[in-house]
Design a protein around this nucleic acid. Structure first.
Lengths: 409, 409
DNA sequence: CGCTCCTGTCCACCCGCACAACAAATCAGT
DNA sequence: ACTGATTTGTTGTGCGGGTGGACAGGAGCG
């Protein structure tokens, strides 16, 4: 039973098959490698049913069977056949658009980054220039793909507000973009027509950490991203919190200090003016041209200054508001907050404990990203893969095979 | 496709039937009255399937068929038979525990309040005393129930933090309760054993407004409740946002003015210290013993004072943080905010527009509760009814019949 | 070398929904 | 008032999909 998050629809058995097939694939994807027996117990279905589903995945070229592991013994009984992702199976292109560089990766099911490439992005570059650069990187990583493997889609992580209905980039302050249809630009530059999904970098960080990072199995998770601006991605009930337009999680403009500095949003003392990259850069006297690499600058510190510790306290106090609002189980600190937390973790913890309500405080823990700085990239891969888990057959139907030849032509 | 919000499970056709039966009932409940043709188009199932589901509901005693309406013509073709809630069908008890009074209602499917009773609650009363009073009210409203009608459960709205795993009231500041198992107390006073669900009043307000109030069809909705303290209930993606413990939505302690007044939570200048009942009472020089009836006091004003207008601005500015965080489509102002918004709506709107980001602001609208002050009561009924929509057969299995006789015994 | 335990495969079976054909009920036009 | 078009209720048949049992395969244990 799963669900139509969209409400009110009935279910027929065709939908069952779709859902079960997708769920099997989701499990294989999540674990990278499983056994049919494990799938049976995880999904609560009959052995025969699982066998049928797995064999369908194999005939679709998505999964492969493998001989049981030699070494590991897991008790008596016939060892269960392994199920793993097919070697030449479907893949996606993940793009992490940063403020100073773009990372592009070819990612297979199971979250394997098969190949990656990156290039600097000019500050205040035009969107079409960036799109062309990204398209070149995409061509590079597709180069190595087996021609039989289908390309399912492209996922793009954007440091800004993305409208969920059509993927339009409404506002990316640090790229100075307004209302840019970046997905269309990249597709045009490539000359391809595949599904493109765009989303906010913090949302994708949350998704990735939930799937294969520090928050596996945690259905109430928040990823707070320090990435010049400050944003958050929220997973609640195991699903992304999006809001009507897709703009949910804009925590950077929480009211923090009404007497504080002016924020580019027009208000005074938003949280971002205290813990944003420019605020931190000022606190550590970092030159403005290195703000985009603030994490590396911070990593060179070994002892925090007083100003930096105050920033840590502000981070914790702001997190308290977030914890009070969402009551999460895990808060993952991404972007340069990762480096910051390593330096002034105690102050962050103290600030949080000082301002959060007892009830939500007792069940929350702060964590560093399990995927390092690659969380948004992995999240971009996840949204591009998502159609496969909803309906594998349909997703493969819209996928492109022999992409290299199409790119050449 | 439907649902398991809990992830990873497979679906079999037994689950299909459960889900479809529950979904049919949910539609009948939502509309109060429908036709089979409408159900067919809403659920996307075949006519014959709908017929089977409806007849099963009828044989369960939940639904009745009725002759098509005489007057209304809806085009050519055979008129579709009406489906409505059975007259002696299942019902629930809804309890709205306020800080100064308790309201108890017998509510049938369709959200019909069949009978209601209320009584004042002593301030700083012991939990068992309140429980006994509530039990008496429950006996009163059950008195009039047909003995054939099954009691499905009891839903209780609580002005405080409720742990979702077991319904324990962790903290109800205005009742001065800590860790009270109020559900158990009421059941013991009744001598019954039926399912009891407890939840926060704002969460239930959101649920009710989503189901049959100002937010029907709106899947991104927030109910902000002014009820001595300030809290919010969030519906996102059509589901309640709960958080791990069930404490999500504690917006009263958002940082608002760090130089402000001390809050009972230990911090300075929480939003609640600016727009909470005590702050407003002070602004309008309302005597402290009437704070619990602040809405009535406010209703007697016809022109807002300057202080009240400032409060309205603060309300709007705080809502801006909420709008930025959740990007809702509708924000419903419940509790005494209802009265306040009638007086100083323009200031609230201005405060919101001033502080919210453009993107979330353009898609949000403020509304008054469609259910007046009964939102939490209706929400309490909804959570008690919820099991019926998940699995009608199972829910009727645990329901109590002939409750009057059991109460007497 | 048994025995036991677990898993894969194959089969018949059941359950639930779809579909087609027919009947019923209403509206529109003549 | 009659006729055709339209829409819905009813019924029987068919199909898809998961279940469950019987049997075989493979491993550990004594």
């Amino acid at each position: 039973m799963s669900p139509q998050r969209r409400s009110g629809l009935g279910t027929n058995q065709e939908a069952i098959r779709r859902h079960n097939l997708g769920t099997v694939l989701r499990h294989v994807h999540g674990a990278g490698q499983t056994s049919r027996a494990e799938l049976t117990s995880l999904m609560g279905l009959n052995r025969s049913t699982i066998a049928g589903l797995v064999s369908e995945l194999e005939s679709l070229g998505i999964a492969e069977h493998a001989t049981p592991l030699e070494g590991s013994r897991q008790g008596a009984g016939r060892p269960s056949a392994r199920v793993r992702i097919a070697r030449e199976g479907p893949y996606v292109i993940a793009v992490d658009l940063g403020v100073d560089r773009a990372v592009v990766a070819r990612v297979g099911l199971g979250g394997h980054v098969i190949q990656r490439a990156q290039a600097p992005v000019l500050r205040d570059g035009e969107a079409w220039q960036v799109g062309a650069a990204v398209a070149t990187l995409i061509r590079t990583v597709i180069e190595g793909a087996p021609s039989a493997a289908p390309l399912v889609g492209i996922g793009i992580s954007v440091p800004g507000l993305v409208r969920r209905s059509d993927g339009l980039i409404r506002l990316a302050p640090n790229l100075e973009w307004h209302d840019v249809s970046f997905g269309g630009i990249v597709l045009a530059a490539l000359g391809l027509d595949v599904p493109v999904s765009l989303a906010n970098d913090a949302d994708l960080g949350a998704l990735a950490e939930h799937t294969r990072g520090a928050g596996v199995g945690v259905d109430e998770l928040i990823y707070v991203s320090g990435n010049v601006g400050v944003g958050a991605g929220v997973i609640s009930g195991g699903h992304r919190l999006e809001g009507v337009g897709g703009y949910a999680g804009e925590v950077g403009h929480l009211r923090f200090n009404p007497d504080g500095r002016p924020c580019h949003c027009g208000n005074l003392g938003c949280w971002e003016t205290e813990v944003g990259a420019f605020a931190i850069a000022e606190a550590i006297q970092c030159p403005p041209d290195k703000v985009a690499q603030l994490d590396e600058v911070l990593d060179e510190f070994d002892r925090p200054s007083t100003a930096l510790r105050a920033t840590g306290t502000s981070l914790g106090q702001g997190l308290a508001s977030i914890v009070n609002m969402f009551n999460p189980q895990v808060v993952v600190l991404g972007g340069y907050f990762r480096s910051l937390y390593r330096l002034v973790g105690a102050d962050v913890d103290a600030g949080l404990a000082d301002r959060a309500l007892p009830a939500p405080l007792e069940s929350v823990r702060l964590e560093l990203p399990g995927l390092g700085s690659d969380s948004p990239l992995h999240g971009a891969a996840e949204i591009a893969l998502e159609p496969l888990f909803v309906d594998p057959v349909a997703a493969l139907g819209t996928a492109l095979v022999d992409v290299r030849a199409r790119l050449a032509g």
